[in-house]
Computed example of a mutant assay.
Amino acid sequence: MSAFRFRLLRPGWLLLASCALSLLLPEFAPAQTAGSRLVPFRKGSRWGYADQSRRLVLPLAYDEAGPFVQELAWVRQGPLYGYIDGSGNALIPAQYSYAGNFGPDGRATVVLRGDTFAIGPAGHRLASPAGPEPETDYLEQGDLLRRQGKVGFRFTSGSSTVVPAEYDEIRDLHHSGLLLVRQGSKWGVLNAKGRLVLPLEYDAIRATAANGFLYPIVEQAGRFGYLSHEGRLLTEVKYAAAEPFVADVARVTTSTGQPGYIDSKGREFWEDK
């Protein structure tokens, strides 16, 4: 059976401004040069960057901060956005009213005085239009089986399991033998042995090709969380909003309406006080 083809989407988030507060700064660790190891960290309403141990590396100097992608991260100071590297150097001055993440093609979308355009990593305006979105083949793990209005699944890759046709919907996650399955209005996750690793208790489970269908977002009673590589809960289903993972971090909104980031181990990178 031929593979599905999906377009990879470049992430870009429009973020809300927040008030700046004066805070006491903790002792800093030595700055790292590899921005990909740093995670945006919020303390109160101020932002810096922490290492994988949640130890502050870049100080709380920003009103908003984004993830490092292609070793660059957008930051907001007051109403304006710019870009820094993993050592905190301002590579592109804060001058934009919006700035998005850099994509694999080395482009980022910005807004300057109402004009929307793309820039390169050096901050220069790109005159040429973006090329076609890169396409990636995600191989199907098997075939759907249909019987009397229900669906099952026959694995043809990595497993010989046949899932009985007892579900109302099955979606292939294209990795690790995981399947999203629905009975009635509730979703769960099956593994390659046909066993439920996540019970049929959730209102929705969403995965995106942009990050290889990893860390799906799960919804239950208006709250959100994430799934691990094994299809089990990576986090509690407790957030008011959840964004797809980008470069091993994801932006969430807490139950109190505050933004923050989590990493691929489910660790939270913020302190509200």
Results as ranks from 00 to 15, higher is better:
G177M: 05
E236C: 05
P199K: 04
G177N: 02
G231Q: 07
N191P: 11
R206V: 15
A204N: 15
D248E: 13
Y239M: 10
L200E: 04
G194L: 09
P199F: 04
L179V: 07
E201T: 14
P244Q: 04
Q183A: 13
L179N: 04
V246R: 01
G188D: 06
L234F: 01
D248N: 12
P244E: 08
A192P: 00
A247E: 14
Y202R: 03
E236M: 06
P244G: 12
L214P: 00
F224T: 10
S185F: 08
S176F: 06
F224A: 09
I217R: 02
L234Y: 04
A209I: 10
Y202N: 10
A242I: 15
A192G: 14
A247R: 00
A209Q: 10
L234D: 02
L227R: 00
R206K: 11
S176I: 00
Y226N: 05
A241H: 10
A240L: 13
G194K: 08
Y226Q: 04
R182C: 10
L234I: 01
L196C: 09
S228Q: 07
I217H: 01
N211R: 01
E243K: 01
F245T: 13
L200K: 03
A240Q: 10
I217G: 06
Y239L: 07
K238T: 15
L233P: 02
V181G: 04
F224E: 05
D203E: 12
G212V: 13
S185I: 10
I205V: 15
G222I: 07
A207E: 09
A207F: 11
E243F: 12
R195S: 15
A192E: 13
G222Q: 07
P216L: 13
K238V: 14
V246G: 04
I205P: 02
W187G: 06
L179A: 04
G184Q: 06
R232I: 07
L180G: 08
N191G: 11
T208Q: 08
G222V: 07
E230S: 14
P216T: 13
E201V: 11
G188C: 07
R182A: 12
R206M: 14
L234E: 00
L198D: 07
A209K: 03
Y239R: 00
S176R: 01
G177F: 10
L178N: 03
A247L: 06
G225L: 02
A207G: 13
F224W: 04
G194D: 15
A241T: 08
H229R: 13
A209T: 12
N191S: 12
V237H: 03
A247N: 15
K193C: 08
Q183P: 02
V237L: 06
G222N: 12
L200P: 04
L196E: 14
A240D: 14
I217N: 01
A247W: 03
S176L: 03
L198A: 12
A209D: 14
W187F: 14
G177K: 00
L214Q: 12
A192M: 08
E219V: 15
V218N: 02
K186N: 09
V246F: 09
G212F: 04
L214C: 07
K193W: 05
T208Y: 13
L234S: 01
G188Y: 03
N211W: 06
G222T: 11
R223Q: 14
V181H: 02
H229N: 14
R232F: 01
L190I: 08
Q183W: 00
A207M: 08
I205K: 02
A247I: 12
